[in-house]
Design a protein around this nucleic acid. Structure first.
Lengths: 197, 197
DNA sequence: TTATTAAACTAACAATTGTTAGTTTTGTCC
DNA sequence: GGACAAAACTAACAATTGTTAGTTTAATAA
């Protein structure tokens, strides 16, 4: 079995989760039925259960796969010893990268996490809270060091997260603006604002 | 019958739509069942049909009630003859106002519009497209006039919309920061950026 | 009181849901 | 070919869904 993630082999389970993610992104978790997903995979609904435990299990895998990625990267950036501004820049780029690279998974995690059952729901929210606390602390430090202007840290963080999250609703791969331009522009906008002074 | 909107009387239909909006915000359109909604209203599911045509009809009312508000206000602001920056400031404040004042309706419209049936879905998207085109034109003009820095207009618009839209996920009425502070801070952040220069 | 209307009720429907049980097909190694 | 496992299938289940039909209750106007 391949659990490394470095391997290219796509197991049947991988295919199912990928198709499911795209369908759930399109219709939402509740509206995307097991029969819909099965049809995308090219199989009967019952056959899915040879590879996944339940519909809930699919959502679970999607949410935590991505949440773990964010958690790991946040740890790396937070421990880098860079200035607050550099850290924030890296976080912005991290979010843009993940959002565009794993766009279906991202949308599902962002929009459908509330359909997680307990205890997964609580665990997911703990991960998210912990992530946001670290994010906030970076902003606080930036303010203390005089790097950042006097703007409410919560407003700052959620504005950053919100504007990047919104990418999933308008970014289309291959079209203009591309990822590079988007990264440049969003960072620029958030750091320096849009007014020409 | 009261169709003025200026009247205070809450018809039974108003109550149903309000309760439905809060429930749909919480669980999503598909997961919120007519029996759930009925329970909130304090009535049997079948009784709802004395006041509303269908579940779909509820979603329809919510989405267009709000979309019409945005459309009307956009027209007013766009025709005001103010500078681009002033217009954008007003648009930001408009979105914050509507988002906080009609928080349940806003969340439902923003998150559940895709469950609208045709032809309502197409009409809704037309309204939204028209709105965004006007928004974009204001940004273009601001760039031409040299008021705004050279940032991709799409990125600018969607960053603004995204950061404000995200409000619904963290703003809680009565808590800090309040609406005034949020308005001030978001406008400040988007117009001037967060870096202390 | 009586007639009328609004708004609730009970009971049921057809369709769809996630899931299970049991069976058959497919592919691989000896 | 035979054995074995992986992965598909068919058929069905119990529960839940939005909605309808028909009936009863509550409120209002004459």
């Amino acid at each position: 079995m391949d659990t490394s993630g470095a391997n290219i082999t796509k197991t049947r389970k991988d295919v199912i989760i990928h198709e499911a993610a795209m369908l759930i992104r399109e219709k939402g978790y509740v509206a995307a039925t097991m029969r819909d997903i099965a049809a995308k995979v090219g199989v009967e609904a019952a056959s899915l259960y040879n590879h996944i435990k339940s519909k809930q299990h699919i959502l679970h895998e999607i949410c935590f796969k991505l949440a773990d990625k964010y958690t790991a990267q946040m740890g790396r950036i937070d421990d880098s010893g860079e200035s607050a501004i550099v850290k924030l820049k890296q976080l912005i780029e991290l979010h843009i990268d993940i959002n565009t690279k794993y766009s279906a998974l991202s949308t599902v995690m962002n929009d459908e996490w509330r359909h997680l059952n307990e205890p997964h729901l609580s665990r997911f929210l703990e991960l998210r809270n912990s992530y946001e606390r670290k994010f906030l602390r970076i902003i606080y430090e930036g303010k203390e060091q005089g790097e950042l202007r006097d703007i409410n840290p919560k407003v700052t963080m959620y504005s950053i997260l919100g504007s990047i999250r919104w990418l999933q609703n308008w970014y289309t791969p291959g079209k203009q603006p591309g990822i590079g331009e988007i990264k440049q522009n969003i960072t620029d906008l958030l750091l320096s604002g849009m007014v020409n002074k």
